Amino acid sequence: MNVFKELYQNRKLIWKLSKNDFRNKFAGAYFGIVWAFIQPMVTVAVYFVVFQLGLRVQPAATGYPYICWLVSGIIPWFFFSDALPSASNCLLEYSYLVKKVVFKISVLPIVKVISSLFVHLFFIVFAILIFALMGKLPPVQIIQIGYYTFAVICLVVVLSYLTCSITPFFRDFGQIINVILNVGMWATPILWDTTTIPNIPNWLNSLLKLNPLYYIVQGYRDSFMNGLWFFEHPWHTLYFWAFVLMAGLISSKVFKRLRVHFSDVL
């Protein structure tokens, strides 16, 4: 509760730092913040060429083109994979602020998450435009995309408080996070669909669904294509928020315990 109170009291500072952080990511580059949008778009194009045109991968019968299926599942991953490493290193990047006694360092992970959120909101609009160009407008359930966006923000925030607390003491932890994200990309059904894998064991299918990002990715596809409301998956919804709650309690406890030592190791 103290963390929430600090965030609310410093909301104007968070907004200002987030905008500055977003601009500073590409400061000095000729095209500036355009690169924030070009790289994910190129990644989508590469995956489309390899999996659709090359390997002829077809998702479960949804009535939507493959590009729609791909984009609707990959945009939450882009946000998560960009926000988590960035927020994990926030104390190192803003070490000059951490050393100031009067500065509320609890706002720094939020600053990084909001900075990544700007690009994410663009890609939600970009995805809707792709659906429109393909003549497949999303169903009315698209309005719940705000709920799933909020859900992925909560997930990355609670995890980032834990990871940013560990990184100053163990600098290699940032590289470990990158490795985990590389594995997580393929452990999450973004480029593949569990329904198209023949003879997948039930225990493996259940294990894959324990990944909280499974809930997010599937939720985005439910909003863009499948026309399902989030409350139609009550057990997955309950599990996801229970995971976020437990991760938040652990992260806040670790952050509170270690924050007094941050300035000593930076």
Rank of each mutant, 00 (worst) to 15 (best):
L97Y: 09
F79S: 00
W69V: 02
C164R: 00
L53Y: 10
I67N: 02
V44L: 13
F123M: 09
V101D: 15
Q144L: 02
V71L: 15
A45Q: 05
E93K: 15
G28I: 09
A61L: 12
K112L: 02
V102N: 15
P65I: 05
P59A: 03
L55S: 08
L55K: 11
Y94R: 07
Q144M: 01
F122V: 10
S95F: 08
S165K: 04
L159P: 00
I38H: 04
V46A: 10
P76I: 10
V44E: 01
W77Q: 05
S160Q: 02
L133K: 07
C90R: 04
Q141A: 14
K25H: 13
P109Y: 06
I38C: 07
L91W: 08
F103L: 09
Y47S: 06
A36C: 10
V98T: 10
I143D: 12
S165A: 13
V119E: 12
T149N: 11
K136I: 09
V140K: 13
Y47Q: 03
G135Q: 10
Y161P: 01
I143L: 15
F51P: 00
V113E: 01
A127N: 12
I74F: 08
A151H: 04
G135K: 07
M41N: 09
V57Y: 13
L84H: 07
T149A: 05
S81R: 11
P59D: 02
V42C: 09
F79P: 01
W77R: 04
P76T: 11
S72M: 07
S88E: 05
W69M: 01
N89Q: 14
A27T: 14
R56A: 14
L92T: 15
I142D: 08
L108Y: 04
A151E: 02
S165Q: 07
I124N: 04
I130Q: 07
W69A: 02
Q39T: 14
I124L: 14
L129H: 06
I38G: 08
P138M: 06
P59E: 08
A27N: 13
W69T: 03
V71P: 00
I145S: 06
Q144N: 02
I74R: 01
F131E: 03
Q141W: 10
Y94I: 01
I143P: 06
I33Q: 14
P109C: 05
I33P: 12
P139T: 09
Q141D: 12
I110T: 15
Y148A: 03
E93F: 15
